[in-house]
Design a binder for these strands. Structure first.
Lengths: 159, 159
DNA sequence: GTACTTTTACTCGGATACCGTCTGTCCGAGTAATTATGG
DNA sequence: CCATAATTACTCGGACAGACGGTATCCGAGTAAAAGTAC
C-alpha cells in the first residue's frame, strides 16, 4: 500500500507549468528533463492530467502543455485522483457478510471505519493546492534555485 | 494504492479468536474455513500476527492460536502494521531536491503534507480496537448468526 | 504400571509459481506551424 | 506574391516488455500430545 511515484512527479510537473506566463506552453520533454523522469513514460502521466482537466495540451509544432485552471484551484487531491483513480483505499471483500450469512450490507463495520479514515486523509490533501505549494516554495527556497528553473522554462517555452 | 485483503482477513480472524474462552486455542485451519480463505496462505498471515505480538501460537497436537492481549488493547492500526508493515503511504523520491540542486532535506513540501494526511488517517485507525468492533457486532448482528459462529468455535477449539 | 517409541496433529519458515499492476519503451497516427516549391 | 506541397515538431493513444509485490501452494522441519508397545 504505497502511493505511486507518478503522483509526486505530477505535482512537481504542475509546479513547473505554474512558472509559465499566460498563453505559453511547454513541451512534455522539457518537463521530464527537469524532473529527471523517462520522457516516454512521463507522457502517459501528462495525458492523465489532461483527461482530468488539470492541464491542456496543444498539438503540433510549437505545441506543449500548460495549466488549465488557476493554480489555487488545483488541489493536491485532484492530482492524486488523476493518477491513481477514484477508487477508495479500502474495499471490503464481504467476508463478514459471508461468515454471518447476512444478505447484502446490513452490517458494515470495518468499511465504516476505513471510510472515515480515508475521508480525513482526503481532507488534508484537499486543503493544499498547486498555488499554496508554489507560495511555500517561494518562501523556503533559495532564490537562485528558483530563477534557474524559471530561466530554463522561459528559455524553452513556446508561443 | 489499495489496502491488502490480508488486513481485512486478519481483523476478522482476531474477532473470531475473541470468541475463545481463556486458555483455549483454535487451529489455523478452522479460522481460514470460517473466513473462506485459502488455508496455506492464511497461515502466513497468522504468523505475521504472531510476530507482531497480537496473537500467540501453540505448536504440536492440541495446538493453535489465541489472542495475546486484551481485545481492547489491539487497535485496528496494530493489525494494519502487522500485515502491511510500518512504512508510510508516501515516500519522496527526492525529485524536488534534485531539481533545485539542494542538499538533503532542506525543503520538504509534499512530504510534510502527506505525513500530515497519513497521521490523521492513522488516528482514526487507532481509535477503534478488536474489543470495540466486537461490541459493535454484538449490537448490530442478529443473535442467531453470532451463536452459530460461537458454536463452531467452541466445537473445534482445544484445551 | 511405568518407560520408551510411534503416531498424530499441529505450527514454523523457506522455496516457488501465478498474476495483476506500475514502470518504461516503442511506434504509427493526428495536428499544426514552418519551410520549400511552383506558378 | 500567392497557393500548394513537403518538412518539422509536437501530442495522442495503443501495444508491448520488464519488474515488483500480493496471493497462493507445497513441503520438510520442529513440537507436543496422544496412542501404542515392552518390560
Amino acid at each position: 500500500m504505497q502511493m505511486k511515484t507518478g503522483v509526486e512527479q505530477s505535482v512537481y510537473a504542475l509546479l513547473i507549468l505554474n512558472f509559465l506566463p499566460p498563453k505559453a506552453v511547454l513541451p512534455g520533454e522539457v518537463i521530464s528533463e527537469l524532473l529527471g523522469a523517462s520522457p516516454s513514460y512521463f507522457q502517459k502521466l501528462l495525458r492523465k492530467l489532461v483527461s482530468a482537466d488539470l492541464i491542456v495540451s496543444v498539438p503540433g509544432a510549437k505545441g506543449g502543455f500548460k495549466l488549465k485552471k488557476q493554480p489555487d484551484d488545483i488541489q493536491i487531491y485532484d492530482v492524486y485522483v488523476a493518477i491513481e483513480g477514484k477508487q477508495s483505499l479500502y474495499s471490503s471483500s464481504g467476508i463478514l457478510q459471508d461468515m454471518l450469512n447476512l444478505e447484502e450490507k446490513k452490517v458494515r463495520l470495518l468499511s465504516n471505519l476505513m471510510e472515515e479514515a480515508e475521508t480525513s486523509w482526503k481532507t488534508t490533501l484537499k486543503r493544499e493546492s498547486i498555488g499554496s505549494l508554489a507560495a511555500e516554495i517561494d518562501k523556503k527556497c533559495p532564490p537562485e534555485s528558483l530563477t534557474r528553473i524559471q530561466g530554463i522554462v522561459q528559455d524553452r517555452m513556446v508561443l
